Computed example of a mutant assay.
Amino acid sequence: MKIRSRLFHSLIGAGLIAGLALSPALADQLRLRAEAVIDGDTVRLGHLIEGLEKGADIAVFRAPAPGARGTIRADRVISAAREMGIDGIDADGLKVISITRPGRTISRNDLQALIGRAFAERGAKGDLDVILDDHHAARTVDIARTDALKVTNLARDTASGRFEVKVALAGATTGETWTLTGSIVETRDVVVPVSDLERGDALQAKDLTIIKRPANTVGTDVVTAMNDLIGMIPRRVLKSGEPVRQTDIAKPILVEKNQLVSVVYASKGLSLTMRGRAQANGAMGETIRIQNPQSKRFVEGMVTGPAQITIFAAPAPAATLADATTPPRR
Rank of each mutant, 00 (worst) to 15 (best):
R76E: 14
I78G: 05
I78A: 03
S79T: 11
A80N: 09
A80D: 14
A80E: 12
A81W: 01
A81V: 03
M84G: 12
I86P: 13
D87F: 09
G88I: 13
I89M: 08
D90S: 10
D90K: 11
D90M: 07
D90H: 05
G93H: 02
K95I: 02
I97T: 04
I97F: 01
I97L: 12
I99E: 01
I99P: 13
R101M: 09
R101F: 11
G103T: 15
S107R: 03
S107F: 06
N109G: 12
N109Y: 03
D110Q: 08
D110A: 04
D110K: 08
L111W: 10
Q112R: 12
L114G: 10
I115P: 15
R117F: 15
F119V: 03
F119K: 05
E121T: 12
R122A: 01
G123V: 03
A124Q: 13
D127S: 13
L128I: 06
D129E: 05
V130Y: 00
V130N: 07
I131E: 01
L132M: 11
L132K: 00
D134I: 14
A137Q: 13
A137W: 13
R139S: 06
R139E: 14
T140G: 02
V141Y: 07
D142F: 08
I143W: 00
A144V: 15
A144N: 03
R145Y: 10
T146M: 01
T146K: 05
A148P: 02
L149T: 12
V151I: 14
T152N: 07
T152E: 06
T152H: 09
L154T: 08
R156L: 09
D157P: 15
D157F: 01
D157C: 00
D157L: 00
D157G: 00
T158V: 04
R162C: 00
F163I: 09
L169M: 10
A170T: 11
G171K: 12
T173V: 15
T174V: 15
T177L: 11
T177K: 04
T177W: 08
W178M: 10
T179H: 10
T179K: 05
G182I: 09
I184F: 02
I184K: 00
I184V: 11
V191H: 02
V192F: 07
P193D: 04
V194D: 05
S195I: 11
S195Y: 00
L197M: 13
